[in-house]
Design a protein around this nucleic acid. Structure first.
Length: 304
DNA sequence: TCACGTCAAGCAGAT
DNA sequence: ATCTGCTTGACGTGA
């Protein structure tokens, strides 16, 4: 079991997700921004490794507008050295990486242009991971998409589009249940047809489900992960008290998390915390998990 | 330096 | 018809 956080480390004054407005796009602006992002990513990874935080979700803003037609920089060539170095840090540190492109990646849209841009978006995320030399346990997660008034048609469109994707994209892709349209049971149907692993979002599942228990959901999603895919990934967050249902908490609730860790004692998986205060909540969660489960995963420090 | 309107893109549900 | 949330606040103009 590894526990991680996404995008930003609030202990640092650097950001690995700096971006800019498309109106201020230039070659130079892109290169400067990405250079800053990659430098900061290195710092975050060093910090994470020395603190036994071995799971990290890299923001899609690491390469701003990478899927947009405005882009005229060959970032794989431009940042070859940096990407390869970061990849070695990740490998040497026993770190797991995920990415989660935004709400505009919709493979099942009835609009062809939306599908094409979604494929471009997925493509660069996969190329980015490939450029770092990451193994097949590094994943790009996204949702099934919209319903468009006909769920089974919408699911078929997803399957058809997905099966046409090249292998380097298929092997990185993982689906995640969302909080209103496609729950675990829907995602499982798609998962079986596409042979795509399924991330269980515990919080979404609590808001939108077909009556399955947490145990059912964890068992069925865990089975979608093949040997090369690594441990199943689970997204976890708490409800912000007093806010509308669905609002993520600012800090993890240690008691709730302990209940979760106890309730899932028969399973091993990696947990991505989707909680506002980032690394702070990870420290709390790691302490809880170690208390219940003992030693988790050691980080492997680089040799030199 | 700060406030605050806006940010590439889609979709569904609430108001 | 318009607003909100999504995975995430931050960019950037104007004062």
């Amino acid at each position: 079991m590894k526990i991680g956080y996404s995008s930003t480390n609030w202990s640092f004054d650097c950001r690995a997700n700096s971006t800019f407005r498309i109106g201020s796009y230039s070659r130079d602006r892109f290169i400067k921004t990405v250079k800053g992002n990659l430098d900061c990513l290195k710092k975050i990874l060093e910090y994470n490794i020395s603190n036994d935080i071995l799971f990290f979700r890299i923001s899609s803003d690491i390469l701003p507008f990478a899927g947009h037609s405005i882009l005229n920089v060959n970032w794989r060539r431009e940042f070859k050295k940096e990407l390869s170095e970061i990849g070695k840090m990740i490998k040497n540190g026993n770190v797991r990486i995920s990415m989660h492109p935004g709400q505009y990646l919709i493979l099942n849209s009835p609009n062809d242009e939306v599908v094409r841009s979604s494929v471009r978006e997925l493509k660069w995320h996969c190329q980015f991971m490939d450029a770092m030399g990451l193994d097949n346990t590094a994943k790009v997660q996204f949702h099934v998409g919209g319903v468009y008034g006909n769920r089974s048609d919408a699911m078929s469109r997803f399957v058809n589009t997905f099966l046409e994707l090249p292998n380097f994209m298929k092997k990185r892709a993982v689906l995640e249940n969302d909080d209103s349209l496609y729950g675990v049971s829907d995602c499982l149907l798609v998962s079986y047809q596409c042979n795509v692993p399924l991330v269980l979002d515990v919080f979404h599942h609590s808001l939108h489900n077909a009556g399955e228990t947490l145990h059912d959901a964890l068992l069925s999603t865990s089975r979608t992960w093949g040997r090369d895919d690594g441990l199943p990934m689970v997204d976890y967050s708490s409800q912000e008290k007093g806010a509308l249902p669905g609002r993520h908490a600012k800090h993890i609730d240690p008691k709730e998390f302990m209940e979760f860790i106890k309730a899932t004692s028969g399973y091993d998986f990696d947990i991505m915390l989707e909680i506002k205060d980032k690394e702070k909540s990870v420290f709390t969660a790691l302490n809880v998990a170690k208390e219940i489960r003992g030693v988790l995963q050691p980080s492997l420090k680089p040799l030199d």
